[in-house]
């Protein structure tokens, strides 16, 4: 029985200097791979955001908290100009 929730991941092998193309206009190039780190170059159109996954998740969470906790401006603290 096939579980439809499971999406198989495409796994490819690339050498230094080789690339992947996603869709028409996203290219991911392996710049170097050594000591367990892979250095990638991403060429994507301006409207496609590119983030490291864990950083994206953390920023996303903060943004959603900011939107979720927005208050009436009158409830903001009156801040003394601290110098």
């Amino acid at each position: 029985m096939i579980n439809k929730a499971v999406r198989l991941m495409l796994v490819l092998t690339r050498k230094n200097g080789e690339s992947l193309v996603i869709g028409e206009n996203i290219t991911i190039k392996v710049i170097s791979a050594e000591n367990g780190s892979v250095r990638l170059g991403v060429d994507a159109p301006r409207e496609i955001p590119v983030y490291r996954q864990e950083i994206y998740q953390a920023i996303r969470e903060e943004n959603l908290r900011a939107v979720g906790s927005r208050k009436n401006p009158q409830q903001l603290p009156k801040l003394p100009p601290s110098k």
């Binding site: 301006r46 496609i48 955001p49 983030y51 996303r60 939107v67």
Partner: peptide, 9 residues
């Protein structure tokens, strides 16, 4: 914001 904001794309 041409790239949107994370979580609010």
């Amino acid at each position: 914001f041409s790239r949107g904001l994370p979580g609010l794309e």
